[in-house]
């Protein structure tokens, strides 16, 4: 139980996927102009991350038992691509309102490296099933936190007077650097709380 919460909090704060591990930078820079879209994208990511971990964990056990570890990357990315397609179809058919709000973000998730990243990290760290779920939930919630905070920061940049050649992406990246710096303030929190 202790490890569960240590990994969960670790993935949100100290090991934030976007700000400390540089996973999922494309949607972080691209879909963070408005808070609404940032939340929509992040909820879709949390959903797919949790599902992908739940499906990939037993598959990986099977691969390891058969000595087919070299197929990991191929199997995982295909599972993620299939899951995204499956979730899109199911939502479209049975949950129309949810599809209308999340549907447009789903195709972007297949190529989001945070999703494949969390599955690969779980395998590399030899987490058990519960801790794997904690790590994927933490990764998703950390992604949400980073996106929402950054959407707020970006709203301010849009209206400020900055040198011409810093307009657009350069200023966005420098702002991301400052947000990332603030997350470094959490360093050591997890160690002190859980003594791991």
């Amino acid at each position: 139980m202790r490890e569960f919460f240590a990994v969960l909090l670790g993935c949100i704060l100290t090991g934030n996927f976007v700000l400390a591990r540089f996973l999922g930078i494309c949607p972080f820079l691209g879909v963070s102009k408005k808070v609404n879209t940032a939340v929509g994208m992040s909820v879709a990511v949390i959903f797919v991350m949790a599902l992908a971990t739940a499906v990939c964990y037993p598959l990986n056990v099977l691969l390891e038992r058969k000595g087919l570890e070299f197929l990991q990357t191929v199997v995982f990315i295909l599972v993620i691509a299939a899951l995204v397609q499956f979730v899109e179809t199911v939502l479209k058919k049975y949950m129309k309102p949810l599809y209308n709000s999340l549907g447009i973000y789903l195709p972007l998730i297949t190529t989001n490296c945070a999703v494949l990243g969390v599955v690969l990290i779980n395998v590399q760290e030899h987490y058990n099933f519960a801790v794997s779920m904690a790590s994927s939930l933490g990764a998703g919630v950390g992604f949400l936190a980073a996106m929402v905070i950054f959407a707020g920061v970006r709203g301010r940049i849009e209206h400020s007077d900055i040198p011409d050649f810093f307009k657009g992406l350069p200023s966005t990246l420098i702002a991301a650097s400052l947000v990332s710096l603030s997350f470094m303030g959490f360093g050591g929190v997890i160690d002190n709380l859980f003594g791991v």
Binding site: F22, L173, S177, L178, S180, L181, M184
Partner: peptide
Amino acid sequence: ILPPGGFF
């Protein structure tokens, strides 16, 4: 060499 430096 820390993450903020990368963005910067």
